[in-house]
Amino acid sequence: MNMTADRAVICKTLIERAKTDRDIVVLCSDSRGSASMSAFAESFPEQFIEVGIAEQNLVGIAAGLAKCGKKPFVCSPACFLSARSYEQIKIDCAYSGTNVKLVGISGGVSYGALGMSHHSLSDIAAISAIPGIKIYLPSDRFETEFLTNFLLEDTAPAYIRIGRNPVPDIYSAGYKFEKDKAVKLKSGSDIAIIVCGETVKPAYDAANLLEREGISAAVLDMYCLKPLDEKSLIETASGVKAVVTVEEHSPYGGLGSMVSAVLSKSCPKKVLSLSLPDSPVISGSSAEIFRYYGLDAEGIKASIIRLLEEL
């Protein structure tokens, strides 16, 4: 099975595009290694800006570059980028409408046992509450490549969260993604699982496990959290008994909240939100953490079976 880290794909795509686009600028805050951006820095030293360990300055500089016609991609750990630079994101990027693309690397619990300072489990809640900025969580190398190219054309500010670890393929070469349209990975009539980023794979596996037990689960990859693809969501939800969301985030203000808000208004259904807890996360690798909180395929499957029994 192919395993590729999304961060490597962003670098590769930007290198490709920078050959003909001198306006692409990558900015890092002592983060080029963890962002897999060293190759970009070496290939295009004049289109690479290092600011040192200074995340607020990082985002402010990017906004200034964007205002003057550049296409900045800011790559820094999601935990610091979304929290330390929050006001710069709010004012210099979103409110000012500058074309800054914020790539939050090592997102969620990627950093495992480094602890809560390094987890980003409130980034979606915080950034989605700011008007004027988009949010994306791609799930594999093909979706990441599509998204990077799309973001180079789109001029709105955006926050993209990716994980640290190599992830298996979900799509295949040549798959035609559509802008801001969720991907129906699997149809189903009992339950709909709505996912994004690194929960897509375990949810897809869970749906296949459930099928063997005679339970039909749809899977929707909501890589575009903002603008949320409400149409696909309602379509998928209307054909099932209940909806489950799975996300690498706090229980507040993430995918689960967004999905519940849309469905309660337009397609009332029971929604079960699986997420990380509203308490300090147990220490361990991200796989151990996912398993402990029931966000792996087995855990998702078990929650869905319980939910269907309760209905």
């Binding site: 046992a113 480094l114 602890g115 300072s117 390094h118 147990i282 220490s283 361990g284 690798s285 151990e288 402990y292």
Partner: peptide, 8 residues
């Protein structure tokens, strides 16, 4: 896994 002796 589960330790308080984390990396920070």
């Amino acid at each position: 896994f589960g330790t308080e002796f984390i990396g920070h």
